[in-house]
């Protein structure tokens, strides 16, 4: 098996440069690559374009990179509940492209499947459709949406092996699978890293061919955005 293992987050992100386009997995704070984000913050690189469903919260996740003005442009579907993100968007400090969540997923998926574009009805008749090709199939209008092109994809998995195979837990799978498939270089951080043969091939969500670097993160914080309980 081809060994994808690297030592840590610093080594995994060592060649990410100012101006790069990154995909970052996660939904809210669930399944975000928190070790790589911390390393990007420490490295201090700037002018990044980040493709991610959300931008974390003000004090965790991509929100940390926004605070330090490391991000030039965000491509996301939802800003709500992130005050700094909304402030930078409204003030024009940050270039933000808001796109439908399914379109975000499908544009990643298209990249991972080698398809140049997809058609979706999401956004028809709205400002999302401005300047895009519309085509009618069976009486319904669809927008042409192009596959993303990102230099790096950074994802977080539950378990992985050194061959790069990944398994996700619960709803932390979200965008992580399709983003893992979409990057020119894909970096995976995992809670548990094992040798090839220890994961059941039946259970693999992302085969290692899509993953270029993998490392085990430790002491995951896994912050919860809205802890809601019943008695």
């Amino acid at each position: 098996m081809i060994n994808k293992k690297v030592a840590n987050a610093e080594e995994a992100i060592h060649d990410i440069q100012d101006g790069d386009t990154l995909m970052l997995g996660g939904f809210g704070l669930c399944g975000i690559p928190e070790k790589c984000i911390a390393a990007l913050v420490r490295k201090g690189i700037k002018n990044l374009t980040c493709i991610s469903n959300n931008a974390g919260v003000d004090v965790f996740g991509i929100g940390l990179m926004l605070q330090l003005k490391q991000v030039k442009k965000m491509i996301s579907s939802y800003v709500g509940e992130n005050a700094e993100f909304e402030r930078q968007l409204l003030s024009g400090e940050l270039d933000v492209e808001l796109i439908p969540q399914g379109t975000l997923a499908f544009r990643c998926m298209a990249a991972g499947y080698g398809m140049p574009a997809i058609y979706t009805p999401a956004g028809i008749g709205t400002e999302v459709a401005i300047g895009k090709e519309v085509r009618n199939f069976n009486g319904k209008d669809y927008l042409l949406e192009k596959a993303f092109e990102a230099n790096f994809s950074i994802v977080k998995a539950w378990k992985g092996d050194t061959a790069g195979n990944l398994i996700f837990k619960a709803t932390s799978r979200n965008f992580n699978t399709v983003m893992a498939m979409a990057g020119k270089i894909t970096i995976a951080e995992v809670e548990e890293l094992v040798e090839p043969g220890e994961l059941d091939p039946n259970q693999i969500h992302v085969p290692g061919i899509y993953v270029h670097r993998i490392f085990k993160g430790s002491d995951y914080e896994k912050r919860i955005e809205k802890k809601t309980t019943t008695v």
Binding site: S77, Y78, L98, P100, Q101, G102, T120, P121, T126, V128
Partner: peptide, 21 residues
């Protein structure tokens, strides 16, 4: 349901997909 220009932007999240289909 996703934006008040100049005042408030939540983003469409999954709503544009859901209402389209």
């Amino acid at each position: 349901n996703w934006k008040i220009p100049g005042k408030m932007v939540k983003g469409m999240g999954g709503a544009m997909d859901l209402v389209a289909s």
